[in-house]
Design a protein around this nucleic acid. Structure first.
Lengths: 352, 352
DNA sequence: CGACGCTGAGACAACGTTGACTCGACGGGA
DNA sequence: TCCCGTCGAGTCAACGTTGTCTCAGCGTCG
């Protein structure tokens, strides 16, 4: 296991402009000018300064610079997601990173794990580091604690879920319409007993998707039945258990609408374990990798994660660029992808 | 789309200790003491200060604080991954985040997309922000540009891939042994014509896995055949094409060893498209979600991503805590998961 | 030939905070 | 009663950088 030398034999600290200036025989301010590429520096002197900087391995200190600078910008934004490891959050933060990258801005990422306390802590931690702005997938239901931050000039955009008790820019998927489309799609195949399986109803996206579900039933003149509705957590395990219970009912559903990623996967697992994957129709909200390769392929309402992230980031940067217009709420459409599971007719595999 | 009021009607800047001090009628230093919870402050005064701070919505400025403080710590580390959106990188950065979180440290994440220039840029950008340390999944083959940073006191740990031309702490999976295990496993089922399909050979992990493949063949007295070895890029598309070409050979392989995530998934797609998923044996390096739910399930050499990330983060923090011992190279074992695809016998489905 | 504008570099202070030091008040022991 | 130690709060400078101002030197034009 042991390999080499101590990593820093002489832990002397980082060179500063002062040292570069001394070596180049100029004033600190001149070094500053060269580093910031101010054109009014004699090329010969600039070259000497650059040489000295290279020799010492000088790197500018952005924290000091942003402290002194007029705008106080740190060229860093904060991003709060549900869990950096889950595909949705990962894709979202990557998109935001891409937009930020184009402007030389870095992204501090934090995972909330659906914990409102953690949301507050992390938001504060980011603000304490004076990030230029925040992109937030909120976990809590009360964002009034951000009002003062907003007034202090911290820009923020909410993605995927709306803020509560706070007026801020927001970008969300059209959850209600997506759910409605999903359920309508199942109705079209003749299903009349369609179960709802979703995340906790306190989560705004889940609530909206549930709302779409109910609305679709209403329009289709299907009586709502509490028995085949389950608001479980967003874990595969609880979704598996819930699906099993649903299908063990005396009058089981012939179709499932699952309103979240992990819930969908849990349902898929449960259906396969019961050998019902070709019998019970299933549409899930939010696409996931390999959904197309399963048999049957899983039909989903796909969110445009890239556009969610890009729009949010662009809104944030336009605020940072000085946009003072009223806050906006942008809705990104979803799209149904038919892969097989959602096209199963009542009582068995597709007939056509 | 339009919603509410302008987000910051009075963009007055953030209150500072000075203003809190003025409101509380004390000196700035006293505010500093209260904020830093120095115990030698009169409780009554401390309460007054806290009240003033709350009233103004005061938040300490960590950039200023870290600038002035002796250690210059920013309570922020940088993490460079291949692509924040891919499952391996996402899981890795989440684990690092977890370790950092326990210490009140935030993580700046950057994606390299296998671009060495981007690696240098981003590493510099992080250093310019004076992160306390770096966790790097390198893209390049020359890290000598980091020597001066290391000497300047920036701690760094490499994960998943070793550094080149630089002596630094490293945590990697046992790639060679993992590949060896995979190929041995296929040999055990009687396969003699085992194809290798992997990422570009310039990537150190790919090279090591390829090395394990060759070594296993050697030990098994199987002649190495260039024709069934493909060093493609890490994309599903190129893996699909390569797999198709392999299986169209006059003397096609009876088993596949795919040495990377996306390559594995590409091979799975190609096999299924050809209807050969139950005929050609297949072991992939690196596990992926839903690998168990496919039929057949995909046998893989699973990396312990959590331990990779945790070990790397812990090594970094122990350096930050002053550990000056020689650099270490830690190897994390892998483990074979049998799910079906790797247990297919020569010439068809498993017989037992 | 002298005044003036311009160009390029340096001096100085300040960003928000904290380390090192100072100073006043209070209490206890001789 | 007086001196000194202690405790709590304040003053000052500095972290590394940049905005503002100043100033020296030079060329130009009347």
């Amino acid at each position: 296991m042991t390999q080499g030398e101590p990593p820093s034999p002489s832990p002397r600290s980082r060179p500063t402009m002062r040292e570069v200036a001394a070596l180049a025989g100029v004033a600190i301010k001149t070094v500053s000018r060269v580093v910031n590429e101010v054109p009014t520096v004699d090329p010969a002197i600039a070259a000497r300064v650059r040489e000295a900087a290279d020799k010492l391995g000088y790197r500018p200190n952005l924290t000091a610079s942003s402290l002194r600078r007029g705008d106080g910008r740190t060229a860093t934004i904060g991003m709060l997601v549900e869990d950096a490891a889950n595909p949705f959050s990962a894709a979202l933060s990557r998109t935001v990173e891409n937009v930020a990258r184009a402007r030389g801005v870095l992204v501090l990422v934090g995972s909330l794990d659906e914990d409102p306390a953690r949301e507050r802590e992390l938001a504060r931690a980011l603000i304490d580091r004076r990030v230029d702005g925040l992109v937030i997938v909120p976990a809590g239901r009360d964002h009034s604690y951000l009002i003062s931050e907003q007034r202090s000039g911290t820009c923020m955009v909410f993605v995927d879920r709306e803020p509560s008790l706070l007026d801020a820019d927001t970008v969300v998927s059209d959850n209600r319409q997506g759910a409605l489309t999903a359920v309508n799609h199942l109705l079209k195949s003749g299903h009349r007993r369609i179960a709802y399986l979703g995340d906790r109803a306190t989560i705004s996206t889940a609530a909206q998707r549930f709302d779409g579900y109910r609305h679709a039933l209403e329009v289709g003149h299907i009586e709502y039945d509490d028995e085949i509705v389950r608001h479980t957590g967003a874990s595969e395990e609880s979704a598996i258990a819930a699906t099993r219970r649903l299908l063990a009912l005396p009058n089981p559903p012939t179709a499932l609408f699952t309103s979240q990623n992990f819930v969908t996967i849990g349902a898929v697992r449960a259906l396969r374990a019961l050998g019902l994957q070709d019998t019970v129709a299933h549409v899930g909200f939010d696409d996931f990798p390999l959904a197309d390769i399963l048999s049957p392929g899983i039909s989903v309402i796909a969110q445009d994660v890239e556009q969610l992230g890009r729009t949010a980031a662009e809104m944030l940067f336009s605020r940072l660029d000085g946009d003072r217009s009223p806050t906006r709420a942008v809705t990104i459409p979803t799209r149904l992808i038919e892969r097989g599971s959602g096209e199963i007719a009542v009582g068995g595999p597709r007939q056509d």
